[in-house]
Design a protein around this nucleic acid. Structure first.
Lengths: 162, 162
DNA sequence: TATTGTTATACTCTATAACTATA
DNA sequence: TATAGTTATAGAGTATAACAATA
């Protein structure tokens, strides 16, 4: 798990009594840098939770997108997640093999598949949603009353940064 | 560049006239998800700028940490960046080969090196800092008056999330 | 014995290009 | 010709474990 180290580094900056005081210089004041640190730490925390229910964190978005867009094609799914379709192939092979996703030929166009969750897939997604709720609760505890404003800024950045 | 695709996906959600309206379901309201989307988009934007000056975005933090902590050892540097020391070896080999970093044996302890920027390293860091300033200006334009509060929340998340 | 840095190796995630089978 | 999905392959970035040199 690549995230263990990151956790240790974070602790080094917070818990550590002394040792070697590292200077982050201008980095410490840059939004980009802090955005990255916060995101990595957050992702790592969610990773832990999802591994507890036996899933990789990356599966969450895939399962959600299939659940919310029943019958979606692999190409549409890859576009929605911003990844090349070839990156999706092994993910779907795994999800189908484990019985979480059902893949059927489109009736009208036999080149494409339509994707749906199986009952097992729904159960797994429910478990991941429970993780996400726990995770969000932790974040809410930290963010407090800023939540709405904070979320609005994140969305604005995503929509407008080039 | 893995980031091209992400850019396309973002555009798909914003510019696109129609096509296939993708449902993001509960994902759209989760802080964790939005944090990730914002960070990926931001990192991609900085990537472009740093490639324009012929550097990888990841070199920025490494060069800054060396500049701000002259004579730092590889182990200390790896801890500061939250990566294993073995991950740093190829990075430093590259930076030394390109004449950006000077590596000298510690006088007192001949196991370790002390790292410093060369004049060329300083120049490259200056160029990357210029990128970062441009990048921050873009972010500031988007974030507006929220900046201080937004930054405070990011730092709080990084410090407290587990 | 413990620590610093390197090497060997592997894993994850991603991409591009060439391919197959349809259309 | 064009599109949906797969395969082959590669690259970036990370990790662990074993090692050599030094402490």
């Amino acid at each position: 798990m690549p995230r263990r180290k990151a956790a240790k580094a974070r602790r080094a900056r917070t818990d550590e009594p002394a040792g070697a005081p590292i200077n982050f210089g201008p980095l410490a004041n840059w939004v980009g840098f802090n955005l990255r640190m916060a995101q990595e730490a957050t992702f790592e925390a969610f990773s832990h939770l999802s591994h507890e229910v036996g899933e990789k964190p990356g599966r969450f978005a895939t399962l959600t997108l299939i659940a919310e867009n029943p019958g979606i094609s692999q190409t549409a799914l890859s576009q929605a997640s911003g990844r090349d379709k070839s990156s999706l192939t092994p993910v779907l092979v795994d999800l189908v093999r484990r019985g979480l996703v059902r893949r059927e030929r489109m009736p009208g166009d036999r080149r494409s598949y339509r994707l749906n969750l199986t009952a097992e897939g729904e159960r797994t997604l429910a478990k991941l949603n429970a993780c996400a709720r726990r995770h969000e609760k932790n974040l809410d505890r930290i963010i407090g009353s800023e939540r709405t404003r904070f979320l609005a800024v994140l969305r604005k950045i995503f929509a407008e940064i080039r």
